[in-house]
Design a protein around this nucleic acid. Structure first.
Lengths: 221, 221, 221, 221
DNA sequence: AATGAATGAGTTTTCATTCAT
DNA sequence: TATGAATGAAAACTCATTCAT
């Protein structure tokens, strides 16, 4: 049987595979290290036989990598949908920050991505490889951020004199740090709430036309 | 025998333990995933007996965690020394960016740290725990960045009207993104060189007194 | 998979587990110390894979403890069956003594039990714990001896004026000493044959109605 | 260096060896299984270097076997001394029963002996072998019991018409069962106190001249 | 197609024993 | 002489993968 790649569209994915993906994501969200997840745990949670996993995937690494790729894609797809509901760039930014701060499993998506991007394991290389493929393109984080920026420029809310790549970089880097401050509160030494204010201030200062409205000092202290 | 913690001072560490630390770091630099390293590989490389590892550590996880903690501490200590040789804030920033870009083992230190900060494994929790301990304090990344900023403020190069925490955050976030763009070139969508320019530009714009000298557009395109 | 307890009924026990039990008992009968038995020896003898042992049991100690519990139960069950074939209390006693003296694997059952009762190891505690469980009750040594005594009283062969517990104790104690004299001939200082005569004499003297028939001196010397 | 045998007289035994013996016995009394005791635990407790153990003994088994042999000898020697202080056979018996019932480490001596007599391990065979040697003879349990019986006969308290061996057997078997009832209360089904009464009654009935004084029924119920 | 019992190669871990100091 | 760091052979245990049903 042709094996799964993690890049299939939702409707193409057999129910048992979706159950497996779900099991993997739940395990990761519960704090399990990706390389430490056992096939039997996945199939038990998915309510299927162990042998069945090998009808759809060749190795354990494939299972976990596909589940993660699928999940990242799904999450960024949802993200884009939600962002389109907000009608200004600043509202979109605020929604993003709030969503990330919410005690929700969704927030792990971003952290997970960074974790994988900084890893050398066989499993991570597979995820990275798939994130470079054409069918992932649409939901690529960089693309999602690019889209909201583009619309912001069109609406005249975001500066048009800065290179798009620079703006994407600015958002990515800011959100990343907010994420880290949340997930590693104890060792990061700055409270997530303060980081969130910094992020909001910095992005608005840098990327939006009307600069200088409100000062950091005033806004925060 | 009392076991190692990874927080010992260099001179307190037995030679065989240093050989083990060295073996672990080399393996990680060669691309091995931390959780995939085998005890026998470590002891073989260190040129010691397998049992000796267990004279100094209780479990395999301890070995790797201590090696990583020791290495991060050593690297940030070196970093601080090197940074002190540069006589202006901008030179320090440029040196940092160059150093990170260099095909050098040293750069792994930062990536490794981020990887661990975003992980949930037993091993990562151990590293995080140790990074919070008093004896790590001195080499904590936040402290190192704080120090160069403080000196920058004293020399009148860095703005004194911004909260220190905010500036530390800005540097951390920027360097992290540069690091990610280097280590995952294909999937990041912006070239490391461009990210480096963005980082330089953004930090100087934000943190230094004399703002507006040079424009991003002009500087880059 | 749910693990074995050693208290399952014969028909509930998977064939591979029976093969393992058999291997363990044979090893013990061959003189191997319970704590010295290796998992690989058991599985090799049982003709199964090493991993299979861990499908049915959690630890090596579990394997050996369950095998011993199962064997003790089986042996006392057989014992009860055989004893019922003898039609008088004295014949039952004589059959017991003969059976114990026979160079047969069966006799180890009693010695093994005593060895375990006098031990403090993890393994022995497990066996003791299981011997106290309800499903062991039926084959408990005390019960088996109690049954033959009860029938003896009913047939008018055994005294009815003595407390049952006292009589059970008398038999247990006598058989135990006979067993010890057999298994440690050199160091016991009384020959098993003599002990056997003592046992027969003492039990008949003490427990049976018609006392004083035959004297020890006369009977033995 | 000539190694220890466990049969040396107290004054011949080097202090470090006595410390080791002490450590072993304490470990066994704390519930450690003889074969599970580690050399490093012994030497740590004895306050000596690990290598030193091998100056006095060839193997770990030697260490434990010698310690046990020495201890059994010492205990039965003490036993004999104490028994001689009691001026009648019945008082001696009562003292023995009380001593065994006392929450004292001393009681383990008898249990330990039985455990070793029913074992097949290398270590137990060594102990048995030593218990058969000439220099152990003096403190052999059978000898100790024989001595008090002999004196009882001389004083006219103990019957002279029974073979000595039979009387030794009777005492041994009775005490053994009392011991077992104490150490395995839960699984033995008769309370130690009752067993003690049975033992006292039975031995006095069987072995002493004036029979029939007091009935079991009357005495106990 | 789906299963899950069985496998065994591959790891971690232990600890008696040695030997340089 | 006494030590204890170092060793490595030996054992327990894991778990991805297979395959008969």
């Amino acid at each position: 049987m042709a094996k799964m790649t993690g890049l299939e569209e939702l409707q193409e994915i057999p129910p048992k595979v979706l159950q497996m993906y779900d099991a993997v994501i739940r395990l990761i969200e519960e704090g399990e290290d990706a390389s430490g997840i056992r096939v039997s745990t996945i199939t038990d949670r998915a309510g299927i036989g162990k042998g069945t996993a090998y009808d759809y995937f060749d190795t354990k690494e494939d299972i976990v990598a596909c589940a993660v790729v699928f999940h990242i894609r799904k999450m960024f797809s949802l993200l884009e949908q939600e962002l389109q509901k907000q009608d200004s760039f600043e509202k979109q930014l605020l929604w993003l920050l709030e969503e990330m701060g919410r005690e929700s499993s969704r927030k792990y998506c971003f952290t997970r991505m960074v974790h994988i991007l900084t890893d050398n394991s066989e499993f991570s290389m597979q995820v990275r490889q798939r994130m470079m493929s054409a069918s992932f393109e649409k939901y690529h984080p960089m693309r999602v951020f690019g889209n909201i920026l583009k619309r912001g420029v069109d609406r005249g809310e975001v500066r048009s004199d800065l290179p798009m790549e620079y703006m994407v970089y600015t958002i990515f880097s800011a959100l990343l740090t907010y994420m880290l401050s949340i997930s590693t509160e104890d060792c990061f030494k700055i409270s997530p709430d303060k980081v969130r204010q910094f992020v909001h201030y910095q992005i608005m200062q840098e990327l939006c036309e009307k600069r200088g409205q409100g000062s950091l000092t005033g806004a925060i202290y």
